[in-house]
Computed example of a mutant assay.
Amino acid sequence: MPVGHPNGTERPNLTAHGYVLQRMRQAILDGELPSGSRLIQAELAQQFDVSITPVREALRDLAGEGLVVFDPHRGSRVRSFDLGEVQEIYQIRMALEPLMVSRMIGQVDADRLDEAARLIRKMERTKDINVWSDLNRRFHACFAEEGRTSRLATILSGLRDSASVYVGLSLRASPERRAESDREHTQILEAYRRGDTEAATRLAVQHMRTTLVTIEEAHERGLL
């Protein structure tokens, strides 16, 4: 399926790898490349008018984001939606997030709180779901432990990355959820500013639970 230059426009001021990654991500999240679509490197390179290398690098990045899977016999393909996997991701996150909150409450410095506030403002302004999803992931990372020594942070970071795929898809199916989610982000930030462990925990878990329900409802309506 063709996913070359959108609307006949030329490639923007990005590296070949950056452009292919941007367009592939957009095509998958927009449904231009449906679940299960095979991704043949040579064909993609021809469509994007680039060499094989940036295509291979972009596919590797997309696999890391959970958008693409590698099959040793069939090559790369767009990841199929799996409701059971989504539910498991969120169940694990809801079980582990209270532990992260208890570790981080009172430890998040003013710079990170201010960065979280800036990210909320950017989410409220943008109309691009891809951009919003990335900002959303960065927002939640503001309240996580830093460094490679935290196994909890590593686990939750991987789960957030896996969930971001489904968050983007669900927001396209239920765009009204965006404003609600932005309000929840503000409430979570305010709880951290107050150092309120109970509120921060409750809000974080409820935020994830509501997102999961949105995904489940979109799936029931046949939109995912």
Results as ranks from 00 to 15, higher is better:
183 R>M: 14
143 F>K: 09
177 R>D: 10
188 I>P: 01
76 S>P: 07
143 F>S: 00
182 D>Q: 14
62 L>Q: 12
24 M>L: 11
69 V>Y: 10
129 I>R: 05
76 S>A: 10
200 A>V: 04
161 D>P: 11
8 G>L: 01
125 R>D: 14
140 H>K: 08
182 D>M: 10
43 E>F: 02
127 K>E: 03
120 I>T: 04
120 I>M: 04
65 E>S: 00
95 A>Y: 12
115 E>D: 10
27 A>K: 04
9 T>P: 12
111 D>S: 04
183 R>S: 05
84 G>T: 11
193 R>S: 09
219 H>R: 06
165 V>W: 07
95 A>C: 04
88 E>I: 06
104 M>Y: 12
60 R>Q: 15
224 L>E: 10
164 S>F: 02
97 E>I: 14
42 A>W: 10
17 H>Q: 05
56 R>L: 05
77 R>E: 11
154 T>Q: 14
3 V>I: 15
45 A>L: 02
112 R>D: 05
110 A>Q: 06
5 H>L: 12
48 F>C: 07
74 R>N: 14
32 E>K: 09
100 M>E: 08
111 D>Q: 14
16 A>L: 08
49 D>F: 13
118 R>P: 03
129 I>V: 08
116 A>T: 02
129 I>C: 11
2 P>N: 13
219 H>W: 03
204 A>G: 13
